[in-house]
């Protein structure tokens, strides 16, 4: 799926714009990172793409379809939250199967079909025996993978990752970067990652969009950005990290 972000603008309560005419195209199957310091608007942009926030102006198109006003639930975008936001009173298996369970009418797979799909995803995240656990009984890294599986269960048209590594310690973080990238490749889904960590963005993403003060400073492959930074900000931000 190709996502076109066309001159998206957003401000909160009449303050200065959080996003100022942001335009960006995320190509089919690509892993794109939105990189920037806090307050640069990257999380707001991700929430807009997810449908959790409404833009003041501009258009979002998915494979040419205008989805700007489509409600979050109808977009079928899988999202991994910074806190993972796992359902604490549900088992791992119920968490992963949630998106299938709430489907309406004939779209909802039968119970055995749902169970099979959950088992498939548990295998994918290499936790085949932990379906009966509760989120609180898992390590941070396991919770993050469950959150990934839950987002992938709905066969998302787009995978959105909001700082998915920030709650993990350095060692686990490095290991999981590779596994997130692998999962995305295996499933073949277009993915957008929000991060403030340059090393993370460069390791995972095909292309990186550097954001600052509500605009995109530069978009390019990690090599492009490192070799030909288009502004002092990009050079400093990439160099400093």
């Amino acid at each position: 799926m190709t996502l076109e972000i066309d001159r998206i603008t957003k401000s909160f309560d009449g303050d200065a714009a959080v996003l100022n005419e942001v335009s960006l195209t995320v190509k089919d199957g690509e892993f794109l990172a939105l990189l920037g310091p806090s307050g640069s608007g990257k999380t707001t942009l991700l929430n807009l793409i997810a449908g959790l926030t409404k833009p003041d102006g501009g258009t979002l198109r998915l494979d040419g379809d205008d989805i700007t006003t489509r409600p979050a639930g109808a977009r079928r975008f899988g999202m991994v939250f910074q806190s993972y936001a796992l359902f604490r009173h549900m088992t791992v298996a119920d968490n992963i199967g949630f998106g299938l369970r709430v489907l309406k009418g004939k779209d909802r797979p039968t119970k055995p079909a749902r169970r099979a799909r959950v088992a498939e995803l548990l295998d994918l995240i290499e936790m085949p025996d932990l379906g009966d656990r509760y989120p609180a009984q898992l390590s941070g890294g396991q919770q993050q993978r469950v959150a990934m599986a839950r987002a992938l269960a709905i066969s998302p048209r787009l995978l959105l990752l909001d700082e998915p590594f920030s709650a993990l310690d350095a060692q686990v973080r490095r290991n999981l970067r590779g596994s997130v990238r692998d999962l995305q490749q295996k499933v073949g889904v277009t993915a957008i990652l929000v991060t403030h960590d340059q090393a993370e963005a460069f390791e995972i993403a095909d292309r990186v969009a550097v954001m600052n003060g509500g605009i995109i400073e530069q978009v390019g492959t990690p090599a492009d950005l490192a070799e030909r930074p288009s502004s002092d900000f990009v050079r400093d931000f990439i160099g400093a990290a």
Binding site: L52, G73, R75, M79, A85, F98, G99, V102, R150, I154
Partner: peptide, 9 residues
Amino acid sequence: RAALTLGAN
């Protein structure tokens, strides 16, 4: 919010 993105009403 997570439930919302997963399509729950």
